[in-house]
Computed example of a mutant assay.
Amino acid sequence: MAEPDHHPAEPNKSVDDMSIKGEEPPPEYIVKDTKFGSIESSPPLGPFPVVDVSVFSESSSSSNQDLEQELAKLRSSLSSAGGCFQAIGHGISNSLLDKIREVAIEFFSLPMEEKQKYARAVNEAQGYGSDRVVSEKQVLDWSHRLSLRVFPDDKRRLNLWPQIPQDFSEILNEYATKIKIVTEILFKAIAKSLNLEENSFLNQFGERSLMQTRFNFYPPCLRPDLVHGVKPHTDRSGITILLQDKEVEGLQIVVDGKWYRVPVIPHALVVNLGDQMQVYLCAIAIFVTWCLINIMSNGIYRSPMHRVVTNTKKLRISVASFIEPDPDNEIGPVERLIDEQRPRVYRNVKNYGVINYECYQKGLVALETVQV
């Protein structure tokens, strides 16, 4: 999908300023008609399993019974409508998880003129700011984000990596490196859960797969019943790994047509599949902590629909890592999984991220636009 010929103007008011002044959200932020249901701050807690990732490690001394048990939970969580699990035993220390949250809050607390040194350019994905505006009818999210490419190393825009806090770059690099290791373990485990060769997904993504880390900031809002922190969407990624706020809930996922809250487990990682995995795996008839398998699975494992809500009292932060193939790589279902009983659902596409982003801002389901 090509970029539009022109882009509407960016919003004049900052959600930071409106939050501090206790102002009601202006019309461009207010959610009106939506096919994804009304905004609820406290729907029921969802049935999202906790998976012990340590049993999937090559150095694990776990029994075959423990391995099969966790593989079964992985398979069940990803093939269900929820498509999400909470990963423990991931090997990232509690202290590092706390540090990445701390530098995020320190950065967000800086004066606006300091944060603006890292502002993203118009039509650019990396840097600090609000969403790019791609539609006159676009409803704006009540949030700010700092989005940075961390892998491949040579794609880093280090001029956009904050110098305050001073240890920001060091901590982000350490965290991203650990997340990359977790991702490789999960890719192998997911392949094993589908009885595929364990490097199936690693080979598909290749050595130059992309990882984008996004720091999400959701300031308090006087009317959280009227706005989204993030609009309902599925992820563009192959897999998404999310570190939630340590205390404040906000993430919600659709399960069987209803919204459910994702509980906070302070040092767990929320894993879900994204659209590009669902396409790849879609020809298999089966289905961690957030959205991974839509495009590459041909639809067996599912990329969940999710959103973020705000609250009136507390800032909420989260750190999301999105892993996806090089945009120049063409993605599509595994050919050997397609036959008369399991026909192709999605066509092959390049640069799916552009398609996903524009559909997200227009309230459309991106995967529906690439169906055969």
Rank of each mutant, 00 (worst) to 15 (best):
F151V: 08
E106T: 11
P26V: 09
V349K: 00
S95K: 15
L97A: 03
S297C: 11
D153W: 02
L96W: 04
E207I: 07
F108N: 08
Q138S: 06
Q371G: 01
V354S: 11
K188F: 01
Q212I: 14
E68M: 12
S209T: 12
T177P: 00
S209N: 09
L74M: 14
R75T: 06
N298M: 11
G238F: 14
V334A: 10
H267K: 02
S54R: 06
E340I: 10
L67T: 04
D141E: 15
N159F: 09
G363H: 02
G91E: 05
S14K: 13
G332N: 05
V309E: 07
G274C: 06
R347Y: 04
R307F: 01
E249Y: 02
F205D: 04
L222A: 14
Y218I: 09
G82S: 06
F36A: 04
S80A: 15
M277E: 04
Y260T: 05
A189E: 00
N173C: 13
S321K: 05
S147D: 01
L96P: 02
F56H: 09
Y280H: 10
L281Y: 07
A268C: 07
E136C: 04
D5E: 15
S14N: 10
V365G: 03
V319Y: 12
F215E: 05
G363Y: 03
K32A: 11
D33C: 05
L367I: 08
V150F: 02
G229D: 06
S42K: 15
A285S: 12
K115F: 05
P165M: 05
Q361F: 01
P49G: 04
G332H: 07
P4N: 09
I331D: 00
Q86T: 06
F217Q: 06
F85I: 00
L367C: 02
V15I: 15
R344Q: 14
I100L: 14
A285R: 15
K155V: 05
R149Y: 08
V262W: 01
T312S: 15
I338E: 07
I323H: 06
L273F: 11
L196N: 05
E68I: 09
N356Q: 09
R214A: 12
R75S: 12
L110D: 00
L251R: 00
D225N: 12
E170L: 13
L140C: 02
H267L: 01
P232A: 10
P11E: 03
K180G: 05
F56R: 12
S318W: 03
L71I: 10
D275P: 08
V55Y: 07
P27N: 11
P25C: 11
Y301T: 08
K99T: 10
R157W: 08
E249S: 07
M18C: 10
E198D: 14
E70R: 03
P11V: 02
V133W: 06
F151W: 02
P152D: 03
G89K: 09
I185D: 02
Y29H: 11
L243R: 04
T369W: 00
L315Y: 14
G238H: 05
P219S: 03
D131A: 04
L158M: 15
N94L: 05
P325R: 05
Y280W: 14
I181A: 10
Y357G: 00
P27E: 14
V319R: 02
T177D: 12
V103A: 04
